[in-house]
């Protein structure tokens, strides 16, 4: 297990190199001069050249890239063109907001998604099942930003129950709309997957065995079917957690949420390359770590994929 975890952590390195390389090339292609961006219009050519030399962007791309990678592995994500602050501090400032929102969304996703899925599987073809199927289909189809705006208009503007946007004083009221919006699509996916894996699990022979032992329906479903049905759902939720942790660009932008997603969005608009690259690197890193955690949970749930040695049959 330890070997497995170490191996997986080492796998992060090539992924990070690949991602940064790609982003570097993309940003290099953009015909925008960072020096011009920083000094605004009217700067003299000498001043621009000076700044370029100072920033090192007059060097060939591989030199720049090498320097960046060296910085990256010593924990330095570079300096923002726009704010003249270290990218580390910018991201550190915004990350907590994203993480809080991600957790709020994940909680909604787990509770509502799993619950709806189970109900829909147990009461197959009932009115509840139909309701879950229809609402999840709609949720999957609706674009997140549109749903966000509709919620804003309905609950924020018309009904006035909840604040329309922003982080405010950080009370739970501010979380509800963005978290629901952020969780919408994944909740629908979780519910649908839970339904199908639950139905699949319930059709297994071991369910009949469990009933034949004299166990109650609650125990058969809650223990025997549940643990099997959860395995794929955990993967889905884990992957979601990974992507949500990286900041939700659309939701954070619609709700003016001060998270890292909105920061990256603004950085793209402002051509602030170091922030874009740094933010993405962190996003990828978290995604991979989340994947690793999912795999570990997975191994706990399903003993058949506990890595390393499998005992021989007798």
């Amino acid at each position: 297990m330890v070997y497995f975890i170490i191996r997986r952590i080492l796998q992060i390195i090539p992924v990070i190199i690949g991602v940064t390389l790609l982003l570097f090339i993309l940003l290099y292609i953009i015909p925008e001069d960072p020096a011009q961006l920083i000094l605004q219009k009217g700067a003299t050519p000498e001043a621009l050249a000076n700044l370029r030399a100072k920033m090192g962007i007059d060097q060939p791309i591989y030199v720049q890239y090498w320097r960046y990678i060296k910085g990256l592995f010593s924990g330095n994500l570079g300096t923002s063109y726009r704010y003249q602050r270290s990218v580390n501090s910018i991201l550190a400032e915004h990350y907590p907001y994203s993480i809080k929102l991600a957790f709020a969304a994940i909680i909604i996703e787990i509770i509502i998604g799993i619950f709806a899925g189970i109900i829909s599987a147990i009461k197959k073809y009932s009115i509840w099942d139909v309701l879950v199927t229809i609402s999840t289909t709609i949720l999957v189809c609706v674009p997140v930003y549109w749903l966000g705006m509709i919620l804003q208009v309905t609950f924020g503007l018309k009904l006035g129950w909840l604040p329309m946007s922003g982080y405010g004083d950080g009370s739970i009221r501010y979380y509800i709309l963005p978290a629901v919006t952020l969780a919408s699509v994944s909740t629908a996916f979780v519910a649908r997957m839970m339904r199908s894996t639950m139905l699949e699990a319930l059709s297994n022979d071991y369910i009949t065995t469990a009933y034949a032992k004299g166990l109650s329906q609650f125990k058969v479903i809650g223990k025997h079917a549940m643990k099997n049905a959860l395995i794929p759902v955990v993967t889905l939720i884990g992957l979601d957690l990974g992507s949500l942790m990286g900041g939700a660009i659309l939701t954070e932008t619609v709700f003016n949420w001060p998270g890292v997603g909105r920061t990256i969005y603004l950085a793209i608009l402002q051509r602030d390359a170091p922030v874009v690259v740094g933010g993405t690197v962190i996003l990828v890193g978290i995604f991979i770590i989340m994947n690793l955690i999912v795999d570990i949970i997975y191994a706990w749930l399903d003993p058949r994929i506990r890595f390393e040695k499998v005992e021989p049959n007798i």
């Binding site: 297994n204 022979d205 009949t208 065995t209 469990a210 034949a212 032992k213 004299g214 099997n228 749930l301």
Partner: peptide, 22 residues
């Protein structure tokens, strides 16, 4: 529930699938 597995119990055809793998 009190009856099943207590007064009458059952052995199934395929032991590969009748035990819960997890």
């Amino acid at each position: 529930q009190d009856f099943r597995g207590n007064r009458i119990s059952m052995i199934f055809q395929d032991p590969m699938t009748s035990l819960n793998p997890v």
